[in-house]
Structures are given as C-alpha cells and as structure tokens.
C-alpha cells in the first residue's frame, strides 16, 4: 500500500467518500464531497471537522510519496498532526484538500496542507503534520515470528 503510483483509498477513505484527484509535482489533491456521512449534524448542513481532519491526514500521507527522495514501498505513520479550522464549512460544494511534503530525510517527513472549496478556492482548514518513515508494516505477531526465525 506504500507505492508511488498506488491511489487505492484506505477503507476509511472509502467510508467517507474521499476521492483522489491528482498529483502535481510535490503536491497531492484529494476531494471530499458533501454527503450524510460527513455532515456535522442532522440540523446543520456543514462538513464535520472530523471528516476534514481525516481527509487532510490522508492527503498528507499520500503527498510524502511524491517527494523526489521517497523510496518506493517505504511505510509511514502519522507522528503528530495539527489542524486549524478557520471557519465552519457549509456543504455548498466539494472540498479540495491539497498537501505537500516540505522535507523528507529518511527518518521523518514534514507535511503541510489545506482544505479549500473546489469552486471558490476559499480556505476552511490548514494542517501541519510530521510522519515517521519506515514504521512496522506487519501485524505484531508476524514481526515476532519473523524475529524468532532470524535468531534460530
């Protein structure tokens, strides 16, 4: 799942209806469309901040694979993430989340991004995140088994 050209959504991306749009140089764009699954509440027709955070996180992870130094197959996990919600975002149209990798040193990647309305480009949220690279990418049990076999 950690391949440069693989655009397969994680299960939660499918659950929310995220949509990979494009990769341009060091940036990735992901769309989030209005739906009941991402609605703030029955009475407020706005994007849920949790859905915006999840789309920002997803785009941040994807954009690391666009960095020129990214080695295909390198796994990663979010270390920390900060989201600023600039205003409540009514579901008047799709949001376009853009993320770009500012630095990549083999251990850690630093990423920034934002969520804007696709039509007006009006910004509703920003994100700044740090990802650890080369994190375990097998279940703990499988890693323990592999480790035991190494020492046999």
């Amino acid at each position: 799942m950690f391949h440069k050209n693989l655009r397969e959504l994680p299960p939660f991306g499918d659950t929310l209806g995220m949509d990979w749009v494009e990769s341009v140089e060091d940036q990735v764009r992901v769309r989030l469309c209005p739906s009941d699954r991402v609605r703030l509440s029955k009475s407020v027709d706005a994007y849920h901040p949790g859905a915006i955070l999840a789309t920002l996180d997803n785009a941040c992870g994807w954009c690391i694979r666009q960095h020129p130094r990214y080695t295909d197959g390198t796994s990663m996990a979010t270390l920390n993430l900060r989201v600023d919600l600039l205003e409540r975002a009514p579901m008047t149209g799709p949001l376009l989340v853009t993320a770009r990798c500012d630095s990549y040193d083999g251990e850690v990647a630093h990423v920034r991004g934002e969520a804007r309305y696709e039509d007006s480009q009006h910004m509703v949220a920003t994100v700044q995140a740090t990802f650890m690279l080369g994190t375990p990418n097998l279940p703990r049990e499988a890693l323990e088994t592999a480790s035991q076999e190494t020492f046999r």
Partner: peptide, 24 residues
C-alpha cells in the same frame, strides 16, 4: 470496525479516526 482502518497491512485505525475520536 474494518471500515475505520487506514493501514490494511497492520491493520491500524486511520489517523483521521483517532483524531476524530479525540475531538469528539
């Protein structure tokens, strides 16, 4: 549930799920 997964290899919850549970 499996619908909340971000990394299918581990499997691990999506970072967005974890962040959302904290905020809620």
């Amino acid at each position: 549930t499996e619908d909340l997964v971000g990394n299918v290899n581990l499997p691990a919850l999506h970072g967005g799920v974890v962040g959302s549970l904290l905020m809620l």
